[in-house]
Design a protein around this nucleic acid. Structure first.
Lengths: 152, 152
DNA sequence: CGCATTCACTTAACATGTTAAATATCTCCC
DNA sequence: GGGAGATATTTAACATGTTAAGTGAATGCG
């Protein structure tokens, strides 16, 4: 069997960890996890958004998002109101406090991102992201592997 | 601020998820998580290994590994014995049952990996992994960001 | 209308990620 | 050889990942 430390999943995992390790300490100083930060950033770019759509944008599963929104709301970093037309849906938006917190984290975060870009190279970074996107695309249809390959 | 859905961490996260989504159902049928599978594969390649070294190989943090080893041992998929020379260390190895389980999962896993390679292209896959390795390398030294960039 | 179905979201249960602290053992140096 | 500090591993505590089940509201169709 192929040396698993050279497998694609491991390469992706290690690369992502190398990147995230740069951001986590700074986020932590502001009492934010990586996922909470993703949510705030997604909210900052928009007026208000439904929970399901936010899950798609921030790339979080529903249950995780549900918990995190509960906590962020308790910290007054976000606001929620039920949609008028459909009582099932709730509209989420960032609060004034949330915006303030983002403003205090963003410069640091930007500086780190800039340093990563500088070290790796802007062109290579663009190439890498292009390839990652293509990888995602090429696996997009391959949803139900177990129907075709599993047990085979 | 940069559209976060196009950021490097998100690209890496989505790409990895696209890949892992292919493997999880098959692993799940055998009662294994992604991390447990990584450990078994790491163990299969070697006679015995210390916990700390295994953590490095399987890219898991100590506390996670500690819990998982406890569970795998309870399922008789691995074996542990204390090192003679140093009572602090414990040597971990895969059990006969573990080997058997691996044998039952590996073909499926290999088939999925082959299909991913086919779809994305073997050459591009090699290029991608090369770039991921370079990214990791370029951030290797950048350990203590908060000493140089944070609060700046 | 009425009710089965679908939908949006949450809760539950268990596994892992992450940091800090605890525990046990070993090493070194006086 | 004895105690301070280092090391290997585990435990604790809290946050998220993952799948299944629950809850309440909307929808469709007889």
């Amino acid at each position: 069997m192929r040396d698993f430390s050279r497998s694609l999943p491991m390469s992706l995992l290690r690369a992502r960890e190398a990147v995230m390790r740069q951001f986590r300490p700074s986020l932590r100083e502001h009492g934010l996890t990586e996922q909470q930060w993703r949510i705030l950033r997604a909210l900052a770019a928009i007026e208000a958004i439904e929970v399901t759509e936010l899950a798609r944008t921030a790339f979080l599963l529903g249950p995780s998002l549900s918990r995190i929104l509960r906590d962020l709301e308790a910290r007054n970093l976000i606001e929620r109101r039920t949609a008028k037309a459909d009582q099932r849906r709730s509209m989420v938006s960032i609060s004034k406090e949330g915006v303030k917190l983002m403003a205090s984290v963003a410069p640091n975060s930007e500086a780190i991102y800039a340093e990563i870009t500088r070290r790796f190279g802007a062109r290579k970074l663009a190439e890498l992201q292009e390839m990652l996107g293509e990888l995602e695309q090429s696996l997009a249809g391959l949803g139900n592997v177990d129907d075709t390959l599993a047990e085979g």
